[in-house]
Deep mutational scan, measured.
Amino acid sequence: MEVRTIKVFTTVDNINLHTQVVDMSMTYGQQFGPTYLDGADVTKIKPHNSHEGKTFYVLPNDDTLRVEAFEYYHTTDPSFLGRYMSALNHTKKWKYPQVNGLTSIKWADNNCYLATALLTLQQIELKFNPPALQDAYYRARAGEAANFCALILAYCNKTVGELGDVRETMSYLFQHANLDSCKRVLNVVCKTCGQQQTTLKGVEAVMYMGTLSYEQFKKGVQIPCTCGKQATKYLVQQESPFVMMSAPPAQYELKHGTFTCASEYTGNYQCGHYKHITSKETLYCIDGALLTKSSEYKGPITDVFYKENSYTTTIK
C-alpha cells in the first residue's frame, strides 16, 4: 500500500517557510505537534488534498525554529505562539472599519479597549522592536488589523473576551517599542525636605499616572512627601515624541487643539466601556464603527496623549 502524501510549508514567522512532505494517514499533531492554519487549530486533523502548498504555523520545537521565533517575536515564552494563534482565530472574524481616516474595530468580545489602543497607536510616533509587531502594525494602518490585535493580546497575556485596560495595554506595548531616546527629568520640591531631581528613561519617561493635564504637570502637581507634608512635583525636561497622561476616570474637559487623542471610560472596574476622542479640525468621538463630532467635550476621561518633541522648564 502506497503512502499518500502532500507537500506543505511549516513556519513560526510566515517569513521562513520549511518544506514538509506530510503523510495523509496521520494527523498534523502526530507529525508536527500543535499546528495552526489561519489561526485555526488543526492539530487533530489529517492532511487533505486542499492543504497542498498551504502554510501551517507550528510551535518552535527545534533550534532553527526557536531562533526564527525569537528573532521575529522577541520572546522565548513557549506558550506565546499558541496564544497568538488562538487569538487570531477570533480577531480574523472582527470587522476593521476605516473611521475618520483611522483603522478602528467594530465592537465584539469586549474589544473596546483594543480599538482605543489601536486608534491611539496610529496617532503617536512609535516604532516597535519585534519585527512581528512592526509588520502587523503597518498592515493594521492599511486596514488589516487582525494579526496586530492578536499579537497585542498575546504580548499582554490576554484572551479574547476578557476586559482590558488601555493604560495597561499601552504599557505592555511600550515595553516592546523603541523608547531608548526618551528621557524625563522631574523635580520634587518640599518646604521641609528641599528639592530632589529624578531622571527617568524609556517607558517611565512617557507615562504618568495622577493627572490628565500635561500643562498642569509642567506647572506642578501636589504629591505627598515622605515627611508627610505636601510637596510639588513638576516637569523639568521632556525628550520624547509623545507623552501619555493618565488618571482614574473623572469628568474632564478636553479643549480642541490642546491634545492629540484621549480615552474615555464609562462604567466601573468590573464592567465598563471605552471610547476614543481625537482632536482634528474639530473633536471626534470614535466608538467602534461609530463616529460623532463636537466642538467641545466633557466626560469621564482616563488617558490623554500629547505630541511632544523637546521641553525644558522655565521655572527657576
Score class of each variant (00 low, 15 high):
Thr10Cys: 14
His48Trp: 14
Glu264Cys: 00
Ala145Ile: 02
Gln98Glu: 15
Gly299Arg: 07
Ser246Gly: 10
Thr27Ser: 10
Gly220Phe: 03
Lys7Pro: 12
Ala117Phe: 03
Gly161Asp: 07
Glu204Ile: 01
Leu235Ser: 02
His176Met: 08
His276Ala: 03
Thr312Met: 15
Glu125Thr: 10
Ala262Met: 03
Lys233Phe: 07
Ala146His: 08
Phe80Met: 02
Lys255Leu: 12
Asp63Met: 06
Pro241Glu: 00
Phe305Ile: 12
Asp77Ala: 10
Glu296Met: 12
Ser294Lys: 10
Gly29Lys: 09
Ala177Cys: 14
Thr55Cys: 10
Tyr269Cys: 15
Val203Ser: 09
Val160Pro: 07
Val203Trp: 14
Tyr297Gly: 00
Thr55Gly: 07
Phe242Ala: 08
Gln98Gly: 06
Phe148Met: 14
His256Leu: 14
Met245Gln: 02
Arg167Asn: 04
Ala247Asn: 04
Tyr269Trp: 15
Glu144Asn: 11
Lys229Ile: 07
Val22Cys: 13
Cys156His: 02
Leu291Ser: 14
Asn147Phe: 04
Thr232Trp: 09
Ser279Ile: 00
Thr120Ile: 14
Lys229Asn: 15
Glu253Ala: 11
Ala231Glu: 00
Asn111Pro: 00
Leu114Lys: 05
Ser310Arg: 13
Lys7Leu: 13
Phe148Cys: 06
Leu121Arg: 03
Glu215Arg: 04
Ser246Ala: 00
Gln134Pro: 05
Val67Asn: 15
Tyr96Lys: 05
Arg83Ser: 08
Thr266Ser: 07
Tyr138Phe: 13
Ile45Pro: 06
His51Pro: 05
Pro241Ala: 10
Lys93Asp: 12
Tyr155Leu: 04
Ile277Ala: 02
Asp41Val: 05
Pro224Lys: 14
Gly143Leu: 05
Gly202Ile: 01
Ala231Met: 04
Ala205Phe: 01
Glu308Gly: 07
Lys219Trp: 04
Val304Ser: 00
Phe80Asn: 05
Ala146Glu: 08
Lys229Glu: 15
Leu65Lys: 07
Gln175Val: 10
Thr258Cys: 06
Gly202Lys: 01
Phe56Thr: 09
Glu204Lys: 13
Ala146Phe: 02
Gly161Asn: 09
Glu239His: 10
Leu290Asn: 15
Val185Trp: 01
Asn157Gln: 06
Asp180Gly: 09
Val166Glu: 03
Gln195Trp: 10
His48Gly: 11
Lys218Met: 01
Gly288Gln: 12
Lys316Asp: 15
Val42Met: 12
Phe128Arg: 01
Ser240Asp: 03
Val99His: 11
Thr55Ala: 11
Glu308Gln: 08
Thr302Pro: 01
Ile286Pro: 01
Ala154Pro: 01
Arg139Ile: 04
Gln134Ser: 09
Pro249Ala: 05
Cys227Asp: 01
Arg66Ile: 09
Phe70Asp: 06
Gly257Val: 04
Thr292Leu: 08
Glu144Gln: 12
Asp62Trp: 05
Glu168Asn: 15
Thr260Tyr: 03
Lys106Tyr: 09
Ser213Thr: 05
Gln195Arg: 07
Glu125Asn: 09
Ala40Arg: 10
Ser171Asp: 07
Arg4Asn: 11
Asp303Pro: 02
Asp38Gln: 10
Tyr214Glu: 10
Gln251Arg: 14
Gly220Glu: 05
Thr232Gln: 07
Tyr28Asp: 08
Lys95Gln: 15
Asp303Asn: 06
Gly101Met: 00
Tyr214Cys: 03
Tyr155Ala: 04
Tyr252Asp: 08
Ile15Leu: 11
Ala289Glu: 15
Cys193Asp: 01
Pro78Leu: 09
Tyr172Thr: 12
Tyr28Ala: 04
Tyr234Glu: 06
Ala115Cys: 14
Lys229Asp: 15
Arg184Ala: 10
Arg167Gln: 10
Phe128Ala: 01
Trp94Ile: 05
Leu186Gly: 01
Thr192Cys: 09
Gly267Trp: 15
Tyr72Asn: 07
Cys156Thr: 11
Pro34Gly: 12
Cys149Met: 10
Thr313Asn: 15
Tyr284Leu: 14
Gly228Ser: 02
Ser294Met: 15
Ser295Ile: 10
Ile301Phe: 00
Pro130Ser: 07
Ser171Gln: 14
Ser79His: 13
Thr199Asp: 04
